[in-house]
Amino acid sequence: MVNLASPSHQMPYLEFVRVAKQNTSLTWPEQLWWAHYTVWDNDILATGIITFLAHELIYFGRCLPWAVADALPSIFHRFRIQDHKPPPSASDQWTCVKYILAIHFVVELPLIVLFHPMMELCGLQYMVPFPKFSLLAAQIALFFIVEDSYHYWLHRALHWGPLYRAVHRVHHQYAAPFGLAAEYASPAETFLLGLGTICPPLLLGYITGSVHLITVLTWMALRQLQAIDAHSGYDFPWSLRRLIPFWGGADWHDDHHRYFRGNYSSSFTYWDVFMGTVAGPRGKAKGHDSRQ
């Protein structure tokens, strides 16, 4: 942890940044990070603000290009996976935005406020300096693997009749998904899926003491981007699944919404392949049972 002389808390934010620049061992993102925590002088509030704002900016910022694509079918319709269906209307998009904002403020914001105490309890670090990129990348790769496994079995369970009707039915309102619908889910499902995202960093931090908040925020951002792209309804020649053979992406998850069962994983394809739950024509070609 880097020690800096704390200036008077009556000074403006830019003055805190100037003080942070006195330590030349810090990168400019680390200087801004230190200034943010110092100016608020309340770690719970500082963590909550940066986490919630990052979540909102990344979610709606990444959804915006897909909304533009939906509004310009003459250009992008040829890339739509379910090209026999029209893109969502402006009314559909607005209805989705209102519901998701309610979920974000009513369900996710209280959990974000509670995150800092949980983070301290599990020994996560949050002050400068940031972790080395190699450690950050290795931990995020592990989080992707663990979350994908959790998501597969939870998602498969949510398609069991009683759980589907009580929890998961909301998310399947759109048989042809679009970017904004990535987090269109019931409060219970939002909470359950959120555990798969946040518990791996907390558990690893508790065991090793080497997880940093910046790693958690990066992981959460990448997980958001993955979920939004998987629900986008578009498959481009440069889509990630064409570069990584076991990556699911929109082409994979769209079949889950179209055929209702199968393709339960979030990021990768191997769980569905191993467990015989590949959806649609690809599943039939592999001899998989479409009722699973």
Rank of each mutant, 00 (worst) to 15 (best):
Ser89Gly: 10
Asp229Ser: 12
Ile198Arg: 09
Thr27Pro: 09
Leu109Pro: 04
Asn23Trp: 07
Ala46Lys: 04
Phe246Trp: 15
Leu4Pro: 04
Leu101Gly: 00
Val167Glu: 00
His171Ile: 02
Ser134Lys: 12
Lys85Glu: 14
Met275Trp: 13
Phe144Ile: 08
Lys286His: 10
Ala250Val: 04
Phe236Trp: 10
Thr51Asn: 10
Phe178Ser: 04
Leu72Asn: 11
Pro187Gly: 03
Phe60Ser: 02
Tyr152Leu: 00
Leu14Ser: 14
Pro201Gln: 00
Ala71Met: 09
Val39Gln: 08
Ser134Asn: 12
Ala102Met: 12
Leu158Cys: 03
His288Cys: 07
Ala175Leu: 12
Ile207Asp: 00
Met119Val: 08
Leu114Thr: 02
Thr95Asp: 13
Ile214Asn: 10
Asp41Ala: 12
His256Glu: 08
Phe143Leu: 02
Tyr126Met: 03
Pro177Gly: 06
Tyr184Glu: 08
Pro131Cys: 05
Ala46Gln: 02
Thr269Ser: 07
Trp28Pro: 15
Tyr164Cys: 01
His84Gln: 14
His116Trp: 12
Met127Thr: 13
Ile100Tyr: 08
Thr208His: 01
Thr277Leu: 04
Phe268Asn: 07
Pro117Met: 02
Met275Lys: 11
Val278His: 07
Ala250Lys: 01
Cys122His: 00
Ser186Tyr: 05
Gly287Ser: 08
Leu57Arg: 04
Gly262Glu: 03
Ala69Asp: 00
Asp229Asn: 12
His77Phe: 04
Tyr152Asp: 06
Trp33Thr: 07
Asp289Met: 09
Gly287Gln: 07
Tyr206Lys: 13
Gly161Ile: 02
Ser6Cys: 10
Tyr174Glu: 11
Gln125Thr: 10
Leu111Tyr: 01
Asn263His: 02
Trp40Ser: 05
Leu121His: 10
Tyr270Ile: 14
Ile214Tyr: 07
Val106Ala: 13
Gly179Gln: 06
Lys85Cys: 11
Phe274Ala: 13
Gly287Cys: 06
Ile244Cys: 12
Gly194Pro: 08
Leu124Asn: 01
Val107Ala: 04
Pro129Ile: 02
Tyr150Asp: 06
Pro177Asp: 05
Gly287Pro: 03
Ile214Cys: 11
Pro162Ala: 08
Gln173Arg: 15
Gly123Tyr: 01
Thr218Val: 10
Gly283Met: 03
Met220Tyr: 11
Arg291Glu: 14
Ile244Asn: 07
Phe52Gly: 07
Gly194Ile: 06
Val107Ser: 05
Asp43Thr: 11
Arg80Asp: 05
Trp28Cys: 01
Ala138Cys: 08
Gly262Ala: 01
Ala54Thr: 15
His151Asp: 07
Lys284Thr: 11
Phe144Gly: 03
Val167His: 00
Pro129Cys: 01
Gly48Arg: 05
Thr95Met: 10
Ser186Trp: 09
Gln226Trp: 08
Ala157Lys: 10
